[in-house]
Design a binder for these strands. Structure first.
Lengths: 220, 220
DNA sequence: CGCGTAACCTACTGGGAGTAAGTTACCCGG
DNA sequence: CCGGGTAACTTACTCCCAGTAGGTTACGCG
């Protein structure tokens, strides 16, 4: 590697497409994370790559395409991490626990950029929204699978609803965790698994004024 | 156009500031809801108001300011609706139930624009993010209050975490509900309250392989 | 009736997304 | 070593839209 010396100025290093794309995704993820999608400019991303703007368009088509590519890469990484974590589990509860820890750890390490993804989905075109939604679907499938194992007696609509609940709760929890440095990924995972397992019941008063007959009825 | 306009040419009605502002907010809420924040153009909003763009800037300062004003108005409305609903309740469970129904009903009726708010928070400036976050804080306060009543024995960190969980779950549930016409606001509320009350425990297998000693530990 | 002011306008600037068309460096077969 | 083909890269634009400067009209009111 004679010319691979890390010198930013003067000498422009010409890169292979694959390498340049990877670098662009790294830079884009960072810039999007710093300013948010809308405020990030393609010129800035190009400049930080040491390259001119049309290259970005050559490789990713549009600003939106660049975001989609970032999302897609993260999605793959997240899926990989969570699946690997869950594969090591034995009981359903353990699956849930390990999955949650993996999820919160992942977001913890990618916090800035991933928080952006969670809050800024529909940036411009439906394309982006679709990519983010695809990530959710992927996670949903995973969760729904766990739920089905966890609760084989639950009807489909309840599984679906609870999957959504868990998705939303996890995302909010992740966002909250990034703003609370004293809350570790394990803490977040524990809150989630505890809540999923029993809800509020551990804290209910021992003699609750809860006539089950007239309460908003049981899940059918 | 060839003069086929349904309204007479001199119809340019001059309005009081208050009335015009209200109209602008109505139109903006609709346009933002239709296209999303980023894709919505100030020119279109102005045109639909039958007014020119600088008027919008005169009254709201910026595109962002307009969004913030929309959010603020919706926030007040939502708070009003949920508080009124909860005031009529008797037991803590009833509070939760009524609050949830009110929340989902509100979003159901404002679906397009409110879904936009839920998914598109950090549009441009921190100002907008702040306004949306303020709405969340308001709701969080409400929820945390209910939780404290519901579960007086729960420690503060659990209350905080569970509040976030419920917030996130509700938002996701609301989004899901808008895409599922067969799910009513009451259905959504029922899923939520059931999950909050007991989590997954009703569906757990009667003889669960759950050694509590090594399981991710209980909420402290 | 005229005068102050608030509602409203036309016509512009500026910045960033996206593009057309040209230039340079690297690889590879003679 | 040498051309030439192609992939990496550039300059220099266009267009669209947020935001603005400054002027114009209509309404209330003394």
């Amino acid at each position: 590697m004679s010319g691979a010396t890390p010198r930013p100025p003067s000498r422009r290093t010409r890169m292979s497409r694959a390498a340049r794309e990877r670098q662009m995704l790294d830079v884009a993820e960072q810039v999007f994370g710093e300013h948010g999608y809308q405020a990030a400019s393609m010129d800035e991303i190009a400049e930080r790559c040491g390259v001119s703007k049309p290259m970005l368009y050559e490789y990713f088509g549009s600003k939106d395409g660049l975001l989609v590519a970032c999302v897609t890469r993260s999605k793959a990484e997240l899926l990989d991490v969570t699946q690997k974590a869950m594969a090591a589990a034995t009981t359903p509860e353990d699956i849930l626990w390990r999955g949650m820890v993996a999820y919160f750890s992942f977001i913890d390490s990618h916090s800035k950029s991933f928080a952006m993804l969670l809050r800024e989905p529909t940036a411009a075109t439906p394309q982006t929204a679709e990519a983010v939604e695809a990530t959710r679907r992927q996670q949903s499938t995973l969760i729904a699978g766990v739920l089905a194992t966890f609760a084989p007696s639950a009807p489909a609509d309840v599984i679906e609803a609870y999957t959504q609940i868990i998705m939303g709760a996890s995302e909010r929890m992740a966002l909250w965790q990034t703003s609370r440095p004293d809350v570790s990924a394990e803490d977040a995972a524990r809150y989630m698994t505890d809540f999923c397992r029993q809800g509020l019941s551990p804290y209910l008063t021992p003699a609750p004024p809860r006539p089950c007959a007239e309460a908003p009825r049981e899940p059918r």
